[in-house]
């Protein structure tokens, strides 16, 4: 555990809490892609199956359970509790275009051809692209509420901090996880364009982020 990794996990936690609290307090999930949230729930579910097989640390176990619980709570709020506000007409990204290649890749490129390893790899690849329905939705509607952009900012920050964590671990413990690092870098690239808009628009006091 290093400071980048801890800060990355905290950013991830903050992002998910921002989204949950926003939906809960506004009683609305307008502008939120339910598809991205289902994909994230799938990411956590397939990655954290090792909760049943290995014990790494209390921190690790607690964070995994919290991420799982909060991602399912988010999906529940969007599709059940506040489904009347769900913006399905703009949440039209075809997730099969993500799932099919990601399933194929996880069978081809993994550390061991076992169910748990393939599912872990699937979760890593899927996380890299799971935000695409949300970014697609923002592009389609041409705007995003500032709270939604704060959520995306912390999610992107979490990815960037994980890269710093990997650089640190490479130099201090010669740790290098090729699958996680390559997908992590790809994932972070998706946020770059958004980061630019966030800094130039949202941080200058706009209530909404309107796309150029």
């Amino acid at each position: 555990m290093n400071v980048f990794r801890l800060a990355g996990d905290v950013s991830h936690l903050v992002a998910i809490i921002i989204l949950l609290v926003k939906i809960w307090r506004s009683k609305s999930c307008a502008g939120i892609s339910g598809k991205s949230q289902v994909l994230f729930a799938l990411v956590f579910t397939t990655r954290y199956l090792d909760l049943f097989t290995v014990f790494i640390s209390a921190y690790n176990t607690i964070m995994k359970v919290v991420f799982l619980a909060m991602s399912y709570a988010t999906v529940y709020l969007i599709y059940m509790r506040f489904r009347n506000m769900y913006d399905s007409e703009n949440d039209t990204f075809r997730v099969e275009f993500l799932l099919v290649p990601v399933i194929g890749l996880s069978f081809l490129e993994n550390y061991a051809f076992t169910p748990l390893e393939i599912l872990w790899t699937f979760s890593i690849f899927l996380e890299a692209v799971a935000i695409m329905p949300q970014l697609f939705m923002i592009t389609k509607t041409g705007e995003a509420e500032s709270i939604t952009t704060h959520y995306l900012f912390f999610l992107g920050l979490y990815r960037a901090l994980y890269i710093a964590n990997w650089v640190w671990r490479y130099h201090t413990e010669e740790f290098f996880d090729q699958i996680a690092v390559v997908s992590g870098v790809v994932q972070t690239i998706f946020y770059c364009d958004f980061f630019y808009l966030y800094v130039t628009r949202v941080l200058r006091g706009k209530a909404k982020m309107i796309l150029p």
Binding site: H12, V54, I56, Y111, E173, F175, D177, A180
Partner: peptide
């Protein structure tokens, strides 16, 4: 200690 392929990470 850490597992070989980063499973200590979240």
């Amino acid at each position: 200690s850490d597992s070989p392929n980063g499973k200590d990470e979240l």
